[in-house]
Every structure is written in C-alpha cells, then in structure tokens.
Amino acid sequence: MLWGAVTLLFFLFFLLPDNPAELIAGGKGKTPDPQVVKNIEKKYGLDEPIVVQYVKYLGRIVTLDFGESYADGQPVTQIIKERAPASLRLATWAILVEAFVGIGAGVLSAVRKYSVADTLTTLLAALLSAIPVFVLGYLLQQVFGVHAFKAGWPEWAQLPVQGIGPNTWVAWIFPTVEEFPYLILPVVVLASVSAIIVARLARSSMLEVGKSDFIRTARAKGLKEGQITSRHVLRNAMIPVVTFIGIDFGVLVGSAILTETVFNWPGLGSKIAQAASARDLPVLLGLTVVVVVVFGLVNLCVDISYAWFDPRVRFDEGGGQ
C-alpha cells in the first residue's frame, strides 16, 4: 500500500515535462549553460535512468534520507524535523475540537430533533461546506484581526492573524497563555468544515441507533433517558463517526495546506504549498511521503479503536466476528 503510494508519487513527480536540472540552473524560459546543467544533473543523480533513480530513492528513504531541497540545499529531513511539530499540534487540536464540537452538536440536534438548534446546524452545515477554507480564513482574519482592532473590541477578542507567535508549549501540546491566541483562528478554520460533517453524521447515526431493539429493551428495563443516551445510544452511534474522522484525515491534510498558507503557520502544509509552486521536487516528495505514512497510521488507529467502541469486533479471535 504505502509502497504503491510512494511509487505513484515518485513517478508522477519525476516524469516532468521540463528538466529539473535546467530549472535549478536558471529557472523557466532561460537557457542555462549546458555544462552547469550537466554538473547539476550529476550532483542530484538526475543523469541516471529513471528506474535507477527510483531504486536509489527507495533505498534512501528506508534510512530516512529524503535528499536535499533544490531551492536552498537544506536536507529534507531537517525541514521535516523543524516543521512537523507545528503541524502536528495544529492538527491534533483541530481534530479534538472537530470531534468534541461535532459530536456535541450532533447529539444535541438528535436529542432535540427539529428544534431551532437542529435546523441551524443543518443550514450551517450546508453553508460551511460551500465556503472554501481559505475564504473562511480571510473572513475570520478580517473580523478578529482588522475589524476588532478598528472597532475597539475587548482585548481578548483581538486575535493575531499571522504566524505562530512565541511558539511556547507546556508538555509539548498545551499552548502557554502567550501562545494561545495564535492558535485559536487556525484551529477554528481547520476544524470547522469537518466538525459540521461530524455533527450531521453523529445526528443521523444517533437517530438510527435510537430506533434499534436494544434501546427499546433498555427503555423497557426502566433506565433513565439520559443514561440510555449516554451509555447505549452514544457508544454505538460513534462507530461511523470515528470511521469518518479517520477517513477525513485526508481532507484535513488538504485543508491544513490551505489554512497554514493563509495564517502563515510554519508547518509542513505551508511548506508543501511552497514546494509545489516552486517545483522543489525532493521537498515535495519527502513531505508527501511523511504525510502518507501518517495517514496510514491514523487509519490503523481508527481500525483499532473499533474494538473499543464495538466489542463485537475482535481482532484476536482468528478474524471471526
């Protein structure tokens, strides 16, 4: 699987119409000195046949060597080391917010079906899924960055709109008081789209489970309504929701690229965007491989979490259900 993804990406990136060595030597449209081009090709091994390059690349990534950036010669491994924490923190908080807000809103609208809050969630869901992430980012920047300042909103509502700020964290993941404002807007933007889908999914899943026989049994036993919802319905309704959060990680990566670009967040996403428009292939390929590996790990975790949510699924009993 992973190997297939890496192979596909490698060949897509390196079957370029224009020669990367010429791009390094002079940039588009110029005709650089052929000797310079040859030297560069030699340095990066671009003069060898593509298959040889491919095998060598595979051999190198096993030892976690992703090559060097065409743009500034920085090793890709170092870029990853520098930028991955920022992305991981942003993504972790976004997923947490997405899960809690989404499931909360979904449960609320399932319990109070057709109430104002329920209708509002549905409408908001339609609207938010149509707004591009970067537009949402700019709007929030404008409101909490520019307008809040001009209109003299209270200090806590004036939020910084660019960068990561002091970049100080407690226990790796918790932002300090100075760092916290910088985190708010990117997390909100990144979490919003998925949160609203989680909410709709949680709602329909709760309603579905609520109709099943074992819930009727629970009612007949005389359990309190709140207990039924929290212990019986919720736990069973979470299975499709958790699956979705796993699948949605791919979308989250895409949104993260846009969010990090809009907010100038120094993570992997903004670097991927830069590398893509600059045709910095080793960087692009290296970061992409990292993202694909993480994506695979996330899906593995989701698979494992099934067993916790649904004890009927067990992996250790010879695959029998």
Binding site: M1, L2, G4, A5, L8, L9, L12, F13, L15, L16, P17, F249, G250, V251, V253, G254, I257, L258, I272, A276, R279, L281, L284, T288, V291, V292, F295, G296
Partner: peptide, 20 residues
C-alpha cells in the same frame, strides 16, 4: 486503495507537477 491512501490535495499536486 493506493490512490485513497494519498490525501486528495497532495495527489492533485503530484498530477499538476507531472502535467503542468
């Protein structure tokens, strides 16, 4: 499966890099 293992926008980047 392989295609689905790569986030959408990244896959699009790869194709754009190859096609122009």
């Amino acid at each position: 499966d392989v295609f689905l293992g790569i986030p959408y926008l990244i896959l699009a980047f790869a194709f754009i890099a190859a096609i122009g």
